[in-house]
Lab assay of single mutants.
Amino acid sequence: QVLVIRIKIPNSGAVDWTVHSGPQLLFRDVLDVIGQVLPEATTTAFEYEDEDGDRITVRSDEEMKAMLSYYYSTVMEQQVNGQLIEPLQIFPRAC
């Protein structure tokens, strides 16, 4: 299952990153890619938005798994409803 992660860049749009092994993705892998997209920032975590629009911070593989399972459940709903699949949007955080 292909996963598209949209890395939101403060004040300048976003970069889409296509991942072919989504469920095996590790927290460190995401930080590495964010580091390539935002080389001047030191990113130690990132956030995503849940169904209520609240930002949830991801700082570990466990939290990463929770984010992915949340995302895959929303994708299934979108597929069932015949909607366009939205990329998983993440917001890098420099701490």
Results as ranks from 00 to 15, higher is better:
residue 1 Q to T: 10
residue 2 V to S: 09
residue 3 L to K: 02
residue 3 L to Q: 03
residue 3 L to R: 04
residue 4 V to F: 14
residue 4 V to W: 07
residue 4 V to P: 06
residue 5 I to M: 09
residue 5 I to H: 02
residue 5 I to N: 00
residue 5 I to S: 02
residue 5 I to V: 09
residue 5 I to Y: 03
residue 7 I to K: 03
residue 8 K to L: 06
residue 8 K to T: 10
residue 9 I to N: 08
residue 9 I to P: 14
residue 9 I to W: 04
residue 10 P to A: 06
residue 10 P to M: 03
residue 12 S to R: 14
residue 13 G to C: 07
residue 16 D to F: 02
residue 17 W to F: 09
residue 17 W to P: 02
residue 17 W to G: 01
residue 17 W to L: 06
residue 18 T to P: 08
residue 18 T to F: 00
residue 18 T to C: 03
residue 18 T to S: 07
residue 18 T to H: 07
residue 19 V to E: 01
residue 19 V to K: 00
residue 19 V to W: 07
residue 21 S to F: 07
residue 21 S to K: 14
residue 21 S to H: 14
residue 21 S to N: 15
residue 22 G to F: 12
residue 22 G to D: 07
residue 22 G to R: 08
residue 23 P to T: 08
residue 23 P to N: 15
residue 23 P to W: 06
residue 23 P to V: 10
residue 24 Q to R: 09
residue 25 L to Q: 01
residue 25 L to V: 08
residue 25 L to W: 01
residue 25 L to S: 05
residue 26 L to S: 13
residue 26 L to I: 11
residue 27 F to R: 02
residue 28 R to T: 14
residue 28 R to M: 07
residue 29 D to C: 01
residue 29 D to L: 01
residue 29 D to F: 04
residue 31 L to K: 05
residue 31 L to N: 02
residue 33 V to R: 15
residue 33 V to E: 09
residue 33 V to G: 06
residue 33 V to T: 07
residue 34 I to L: 12
residue 34 I to Y: 04
residue 36 Q to A: 07
residue 36 Q to L: 05
residue 36 Q to K: 11
residue 36 Q to T: 06
residue 37 V to L: 13
residue 37 V to D: 01
residue 37 V to H: 15
residue 37 V to K: 05
residue 38 L to A: 09
residue 39 P to Y: 02
residue 41 A to V: 13
residue 41 A to E: 10
residue 42 T to E: 09
residue 42 T to P: 06
residue 42 T to C: 11
residue 42 T to Y: 07
residue 43 T to V: 13
residue 43 T to P: 09
residue 43 T to L: 09
residue 43 T to C: 11
residue 44 T to D: 14
residue 44 T to H: 07
residue 44 T to I: 05
residue 45 A to R: 05
residue 45 A to F: 15
residue 45 A to I: 04
residue 46 F to S: 01
residue 46 F to L: 02
residue 46 F to C: 01
residue 47 E to T: 00
residue 47 E to G: 02
residue 48 Y to R: 00
residue 48 Y to I: 05
residue 49 E to H: 01
residue 49 E to A: 06
residue 50 D to V: 12
residue 50 D to H: 15
residue 51 E to L: 11
residue 51 E to K: 14
residue 51 E to H: 12
residue 51 E to T: 10
residue 52 D to P: 01
residue 52 D to T: 09
residue 53 G to C: 05
residue 53 G to V: 01
residue 54 D to S: 14
residue 54 D to L: 10
residue 54 D to V: 13
residue 55 R to A: 02
residue 55 R to S: 02
residue 56 I to T: 06
residue 57 T to G: 04
residue 57 T to F: 06
residue 57 T to S: 09
residue 58 V to Q: 00
residue 58 V to N: 04
residue 59 R to H: 13
residue 60 S to C: 14
residue 60 S to V: 00
residue 64 M to W: 04
residue 64 M to V: 14
residue 64 M to S: 01
residue 66 A to H: 13
residue 66 A to K: 10
residue 67 M to G: 01
residue 68 L to K: 04
residue 69 S to V: 08
residue 70 Y to Q: 07
residue 70 Y to N: 11
residue 70 Y to E: 07
residue 70 Y to K: 04
residue 71 Y to L: 01
residue 71 Y to K: 00
residue 71 Y to C: 02
residue 72 Y to V: 07
residue 73 S to N: 13
residue 74 T to S: 12
residue 75 V to E: 05
residue 75 V to S: 10
residue 75 V to L: 09
residue 75 V to F: 08
residue 75 V to M: 11
residue 76 M to C: 14
residue 76 M to Y: 12
residue 76 M to D: 10
residue 77 E to G: 12
residue 77 E to A: 09
residue 77 E to F: 08
residue 77 E to P: 11
residue 78 Q to H: 13
residue 78 Q to E: 10
residue 78 Q to G: 09
residue 78 Q to W: 08
residue 79 Q to A: 09
residue 79 Q to S: 13
residue 79 Q to R: 11
residue 79 Q to N: 12
residue 80 V to G: 11
residue 81 N to R: 11
residue 81 N to I: 07
residue 82 G to H: 12
residue 82 G to S: 09
residue 83 Q to W: 06
residue 83 Q to V: 11
residue 84 L to V: 14
residue 84 L to S: 13
residue 84 L to A: 14
residue 85 I to S: 08
residue 86 E to I: 01
residue 86 E to M: 11
residue 86 E to C: 14
residue 87 P to A: 04
residue 87 P to G: 02
residue 89 Q to A: 08
residue 89 Q to I: 10
residue 89 Q to Y: 07
residue 89 Q to F: 05
residue 90 I to H: 01
residue 91 F to E: 01
residue 92 P to C: 02
residue 92 P to A: 02
residue 92 P to F: 00
residue 93 R to C: 10
residue 93 R to W: 09
residue 94 A to H: 10
residue 94 A to N: 15
residue 94 A to R: 09
residue 95 C to W: 08
residue 95 C to Y: 10
residue 95 C to R: 13
